[in-house]
Amino acid sequence: MTKMKLLSASIVAGSLIVASQTSFAYEAGDILLRGGIAENNATGDGIDISDDSAFVGSVGYMIQDKVGVTLGGSDKFERSLSGQGVNGEVDSQLIDLMVEYYPLGGLDSRIQPYAGVGANYTRFSGESAGLSVDNTWSPKGEVGVDLVVTDYLSFNGFASYADVDADYNAAGGASGELDSDPVIVGGGVTLNF
């Protein structure tokens, strides 16, 4: 009798392990919703730019087991600018369209790393009086990893870089190019449907 209970428990446990492992694969047709907080660190090439944190999010679609397309964006990052005749405040908001590669896509893995390339549109608003910064397009790259917890929930961490060069005009006639090149590091959660 105890051998039968042990055999039954082993079969149930084994089937649960197999069933849970197969559900950890990212596959074609999956929808990935990401949300979290990110720190935006920018260099100014002569203009000091303050760092700021904001909410970031994206929606992605797996077109193949290893390839996905993602549309992402952020809340406004509030920046202070100073140097080279510029002294003021500006908000930057990011919108990205990325193609991402998942090397373990389609495989049963609790770790799903990815790398992506695409286009970034940075929208500037809320400039201080006398300061004007033009919206701009730029290339962007990103690396990240999802640590799968359940069938539908993962913890996410990522780092990205965009080559943002925006033209500006400041009070007193100062003008030039704001070469911010932000490195964004963040984390949050991924929901997989």
Rank of each mutant, 00 (worst) to 15 (best):
S15E: 14
D51E: 15
Y102H: 12
A119W: 05
Y161E: 02
G35K: 11
D108G: 14
Q93M: 01
S82L: 07
P103M: 03
A19N: 12
G57T: 13
V56Y: 03
S20N: 15
L131D: 03
Q21P: 07
I63G: 08
L16W: 13
A171C: 05
S132K: 09
F24H: 14
P182E: 03
D163H: 03
N169M: 12
V67R: 03
G157E: 03
S125G: 02
R110I: 08
L147C: 04
G73Y: 05
F55A: 12
G126S: 05
G29E: 15
G57F: 06
S80R: 05
W137Q: 01
A115H: 06
G106N: 11
S50M: 15
L32W: 05
D108Y: 12
P182F: 02
T190P: 05
M4W: 03
K3R: 13
G57P: 03
G73R: 00
T150R: 02
Q84S: 06
Y101K: 07
G35V: 14
P139G: 02
G35F: 07
G36M: 11
A38E: 10
G187V: 09
V56K: 04
S74T: 10
S53A: 10
G187Q: 07
R123N: 08
S53C: 06
A162Q: 04
G186A: 01
A159Y: 09
E177C: 08
I37W: 15
D165H: 03
S180H: 04
V99N: 09
I111G: 04
S20Y: 15
D146N: 14
I184L: 02
G60K: 09
G35L: 13
T122F: 05
I37Q: 11
V99L: 09
L107F: 12
G141S: 02
L32K: 09
E39L: 12
E27P: 08
S132I: 12
E78H: 10
N40G: 11
I184E: 01
A115F: 07
T190W: 11
F77G: 01
G116Q: 02
S15M: 15
D181P: 00
R123P: 07
D167E: 15
S125H: 09
V189Y: 05
L16R: 14
K140V: 08
Y161D: 05
E177G: 02
D165N: 15
L71R: 00
N169W: 05
V90W: 01
D45F: 10
D163P: 06
P113N: 11
G116N: 04
Y114P: 08
E142V: 10
D91T: 09
D134R: 01
E89P: 06
Y168L: 02
T122I: 05
G36F: 11
V99H: 04
A166M: 13
L32V: 15
V117Q: 07
